[in-house]
């Protein structure tokens, strides 16, 4: 594969769990800078594994073969030290359920501060300034009272946005969002999608949007990759894949989406 200037991420991964189960089997795709790529597939097909594998965060004992190239740099085999420098600064991850991804014993402000000093200087002022901009963009309050809250005192939608703030604090090049909408109701789902699209428009951040919801993918993504049986069976612009699916599995998926679309149109969600 030729190294492309605009290439953000090139993945070719085989992952085997300690139990011997092979979750990913040569899953291969590329992303270019500033695009939103949807990664779809059924539950249990290894979408989350792929997300963790990109950041080399798989549990110990997991076998990982292949390569993850981020802006021309190979991440597989990198030392934990070097990986730490990349995590959260260049590539961020948002884990599935916002309520468990936030530490229940830490106030929101403290959690954001910890993520800040992981890469930035211990500069309260700079932190405050960055926070104000970010929280404004995410439509979150910045007053002390809010930052003093514990995660359990937030709504799921708010927790989700705090998580996005946590992940975009250092303006990474790539944001991996693992099912960011699956725990949300329709309204907050639409809001989150809008926020992600906005982030992408304004800061040119590349987003790997992992979801099993084709509707969400169709709404925000430029391209879509379909994971099935440990491989990417189809990858291309959203319209192409949804209108002319080639792989039988993708055909079935799209048919199901087609069957649901009219229902959505008759009952548009309040946010649209």
């Amino acid at each position: 594969m030729q190294a492309n200037v605009a290439e953000l991420l090139a993945v070719d991964l085989t992952v085997e769990y300690p139990s011997g189960q092979r979750v990913l089997n040569g899953a291969r795709f590329t992303m270019s800078s500033g695009e939103i790529l949807g990664l779809v597939g059924e539950s249990g097909t290894g979408k989350s594994t792929l997300a963790l594998a990109i950041l080399q965060l798989l549990p110990p004992g997991t076998r990982l073969d292949g390569s993850v190239r981020f802006r021309g740099k190979e991440l597989v085999g990198l030392s934990e030290r070097d990986l730490r420098q990349i995590r959260g600064k260049q590539i961020s991850l948002i884990l599935q359920s916002p309520m468990t991804a936030l530490n229940p014993a830490l106030r929101i402000g403290e959690q954001l501060w910890q993520a800040w000093i992981a890469h930035g200087p211990r500069d309260r002022e700079a932190f405050q300034m960055r926070l104000e901009r970010l929280m404004g963009a995410l439509r979150l309050p910045t007053d002390r009272g809010f930052l003093q809250r514990y995660p359990r005192e937030l709504s799921v939608g708010m927790a989700q946005r705090v998580l996005i703030a946590l992940a975009t604090l250092h303006q990474p090049r790539l944001l991996i969002a693992d099912e960011p909408t699956s725990a949300l109701d329709l309204l907050t789902q639409a809001e989150t999608l809008e926020l992600l699209a906005e982030l992408n428009r304004e800061s040119g951040i590349g987003i790997l949007f992992i979801s099993h919801d084709l509707n969400c993918v169709a709404q925000v993504c430029d391209r879509v990759a379909v994971l099935h049986g440990g491989e990417i069976v189809e990858c291309g612009p959203v319209r192409d894949v949804f209108e002319r699916p080639a792989h039988p599995y993708v055909k079935r998926l799209v048919q199901m989406l087609g069957a649901r679309t009219p229902v959505r149109n008759r009952h548009p969600s309040p946010a649209t």
């Binding site: 963790l52 950041l55 965060l57 730490r84 420098q85 990349i86 995590r87 959260g88 600064k89 961020s92 991850l93 884990l95 468990t100 991804a101 936030l102 530490n103 229940p104 910890q114 993520a115 992981a118 890469h119 998580l163 946590l166 992940a167 604090l169």
Partner: peptide
């Protein structure tokens, strides 16, 4: 949350 914190570097 620990995994999330690690992912934040």
């Amino acid at each position: 949350y620990l995994l999330q914190a690690r992912a934040c570097g």
